[in-house]
Design a protein around this nucleic acid. Sequence first.
DNA 1: GACCCCATGTAATTAGTTACATGATTCG
DNA 2: CGAATCATGTAACTAATTACATGGGGTC
Lengths: 173, 173
Amino acid sequence: MLKYLLLALLARSPQHGYELKNAFEELLGGTWVLNVAQVYNTLSRLEDDGLIEPTVVHQELLPDRKVYSLTLLGRKELTRWMEEPVAGLVRLREEVFLKVVAQGIANPDAALALIALQRDQYLDATAEIARTRAAPGLPPATGLLLDGLLLRLEADLRWLDDCEVQLRNGGIR
Amino acid sequence: MLKYLLLALLARSPQHGYELKNAFEELLGGTWVLNVAQVYNTLSRLEDDGLIEPTVVHQELLPDRKVYSLTLLGRKELTRWMEEPVAGLVRLREEVFLKVVAQGIANPDAALALIALQRDQYLDATAEIARTRAAPGLPPATGLLLDGLLLRLEADLRWLDDCEVQLRNGGIR
DNA sequence: GACCCCATGTAATTAGTTACATGATTCG
DNA sequence: CGAATCATGTAACTAATTACATGGGGTC
């Protein structure tokens, strides 16, 4: 998926790896922190697939930069991805859900403790995201993404409440 | 993560691969469909790591079955995982979010079309999950998981509405 | 006869992530 | 002097997913 995001960023303007890393993290409001190596790895895969092409820009003092731009194929692939809605059943691969349920089955008391800890985590996360959201100069796209996250956090917090209620009413098993 | 779910299932009762696949999908209410090969792959890794151990059960007509159970180490590892809350920032790796935002930046009109399609998808998904949710004999744990999914779907639908509003009010860029 | 269920496995691919390696500049 | 920023890359590891291979039994 990172792959498509990088393509989208390159579609806005050609950039080199290091620059992309920063643009990516800014767009995501810090909710997806990248190891720079990931960017270089992904870029070289994209280049192998013919979706992007580099132009080497020589620099006197710093290392040369490889500025990538989309090929025709890359632009086509990006458009295809962006136009197609995410299909099929929504999938449940969220660690929190599975963990709480697994613990709920195995050990209801421990599950209640886990829920309490998890709720704290989520409240902290909510506060932090709200802070980022309120920062001046935030790109509107980033604001939207953070709103999405906040809505989900709210939903998940409500779910934790549900779990607690059901665990106290005779358990999950 | 599959790994821990399999451990959790094996903690309830020792099972062989094929059986696990079904138990897994039943627990998740069909929201995570497995290729059987995934189970066998994961099981052999777990065995390599000493977290589970097999007992071969001979069968006359059908192929022999390898019934796995947790080792002490496996039980410890499972407990460790279940007790520890999911830490750190909530991360935004959801394809829908990124796709809508990418398209919103690149092509607002296409983004509105995408949102409409995505909303239909989500409504269909909601209906289907609600149907599964209402099925008789559904394990309570599965019910909880589906509730979590439904809450998230609601949240995401509300987010799509937000996106649409913002796209109509001058866009995301 | 075709297709699904039972039952297992190996190999390969795709993605994300980390570790490791290199080296100059700038700021406190 | 040390830390952060700039700039790139290779190699390895983990996890999920898919493709491929095998073969008996039951049902329509």
